[in-house]
Design a protein around this nucleic acid. Structure first.
Lengths: 233, 233
DNA sequence: TAGTGGTCTAGACCACGGT
DNA sequence: CCGTGGTCTAGACCACTAG
């Protein structure tokens, strides 16, 4: 483990555990240098990554400010998921993680290496209040994730589970977006009419483990809660 | 202008002008050091930014490899726009840049500072082959961009025009995505049925000039050409 | 083995923010 | 004014790639 990774993960965990909350200042670069016995270059590298991942903002002359805690599926946020608090947002498993075969519903091509492994599949429906807004189907190759099927996700997040229990990080994604008519099943699950337009997002999340990807197919009712996405260079 | 910005822009321009094409190796970090009289830290900073912006990949032990040239609207790519070559892709102005009033069609709130300035508006329709796939309406505050109305865009790109002529860079964006039924006008322009589902994307591009944003409303026919988006941490 | 990118040290000066 | 982040220098050692 590189030094900057250790510091990054330490700080990230403290943010995720609520030790630092939105608006708080992280230790200054010089403080990090003395606590971790590193130079500013290394401290800055760690902070740069937190910036890139959206955990902090940096204010010249002030410090590194913690941003809104990300509760969402990585890069995409359901507008309202982050704003709405507590009980307003619910996630229901339609299918808890199981070993399954690779589905043809996956839009992006699955590599042969992945196809040689078993596939773990799970499906969730996300609500804002009583309105189902996003149906989410996920597939990932089972490279030997002991316990993933039996146990709950860390803080309800699959990504955090991968990070904490298996040291796997999301390093990027590809997405394809389409506006479609809801199919009969999707319409029923999202409680919309069959001819309603839904947003279909196919995602391939790339992970720090080479050739290991997470494939997701999302169907969103964007009528009341559009999908948000922000990006800072 | 910071040193790393100069190097970044030099390299970016060479990529954009085709001096380096996909697969080519950029000068190594040490070569950049000697040509620009800088240290490796600075060279790496420039390359890091090109990496973040998607212009290069870096291969340990090999070098910095130029990636597919980005021809699109910043973060969003019409799948096919980058793959399709030359005449296959066309952009037609429905409205060349004009001074206009601030429209209520803009989804994101426009700041008072911007509203105090005149608004430049233009509208384009993008085709793949003979199929119109994206209608794009854009608004930006006119902070004194002399010549923007009279002259053509640099290489057909508004962003490149801002970069070359006014030293304004895109530093981030916020997006909201919705699946909607096409309105009558949109349906006609995109040559789809009125009840067809279209992807509506509202974008606020943040620029390096504080309080200057570009607002875009995009309507996409995703039936044959889904919208793509990729992201690397 | 030579050259490349990846990490890291130990400094320096500057611009910005709040006191 | 002091502490903060932003930029930059001048080195060092390591891991990877390819001839």
């Amino acid at each position: 483990m590189k030094k900057y990774q250790i510091i990054r993960e330490d700080l990230k965990q403290k943010i995720q555990l609520g030790e630092y909350v939105e608006g708080d200042l992280l230790p200054s670069e010089n403080e990090l240098c003395s606590t971790y016995f590193i130079t500013r270059t290394t401290a800055r590298k760690a902070l740069d990554e937190l910036l890139k991942e959206g955990f902090i903002e940096r204010k010249h002359g002030k410090g590194s400010v913690v941003r809104e805690r990300r509760k969402s599926l990585g890069l995409l946020n359901v507008k309202g998921f982050s704003d709405a608090v507590g009980d307003n947002v619910r996630t229901v498993f339609l299918q808890k993680p199981v070993i399954s075969s690779w589905s043809r519903s996956i839009h992006f091509p699955v590599s042969d290496a992945e196809k040689d492994m078993p596939c773990i599949y799970f499906e969730r429906l996300r609500y804002v209040g009583d309105v189902p807004v996003m149906l989410e189907s996920n597939w990932i190759a089972d490279f030997g994730m002991t316990g993933i099927i039996e146990s709950e996700f860390v803080e309800g997040s699959f990504f955090r589970t991968l990070s904490r229990n298996y040291s796997i990080e999301i390093i990027g994604s590809e997405q394809e977006l389409r506006a479609e008519f809801a199919s009969k099943e999707i319409a029923e699950l999202l409680q919309v009419k069959i001819i309603a337009p839904v947003l279909h997002i196919s995602v391939k999340f790339k992970t720090s483990q080479p050739k290991l990807n997470i494939y997701s197919e999302l169907y969103c009712n964007t009528e009341n809660y559009p999908i948000g996405n922000s990006y800072n260079i």
